[in-house]
């Protein structure tokens, strides 16, 4: 995890906020619940696409950050992350942390 974070800081596009700044944002859980309906179209069936319910917000934020900056590679997730603003990422991370796995 730490290695990934260090790398992310090195290769981030200008529009990707540093992970520390994302962690500072208090997420709107109700907004996150709405935004999460996009995620459930693919996440939740098991197999190749992991479940998200109950993930710690730090993990979710770093994953979204890494997809946006290109440290983690998946065309779908890159596109999803690119369409999310910092407040939206914070809202999603806050919501999924409240969910029971």
């Amino acid at each position: 995890m730490m290695l990934a974070l260090v790398c992310a800081t090195g290769v981030s596009a200008e529009d990707v906020a540093p992970i520390d700044a994302l962690l500072e944002i208090e997420g709107d859980v109700a907004y996150g619940e709405y935004l999460a309906t996009e995620c459930t179209a693919c996440h939740g069936g098991g197999g190749r696409i992991p479940p998200l319910a109950g993930l710690p917000r730090e993990y979710m934020l770093s994953a979204l950050h890494d997809y946006k900056s290109g440290v983690r590679e998946n065309a779908t997730m890159k596109n999803v992350a690119m369409a999310l603003g910092d407040d939206e990422m914070a809202a999603l991370a806050a919501f999924f942390e409240t969910e029971t796995p």
Partner: peptide
């Protein structure tokens, strides 16, 4: 904004993309 698979991708990525679709169907 969007994305699309590229011609010439390696077989491992293509197999992963198929496995993704199976998980998507169930979800």
């Amino acid at each position: 904004g969007g994305f699309i698979s590229q011609p010439g991708e390696d077989v491992g990525l293509r197999a992963d993309t198929y496995r993704e679709s199976l998980a998507w169907y169930d979800a």
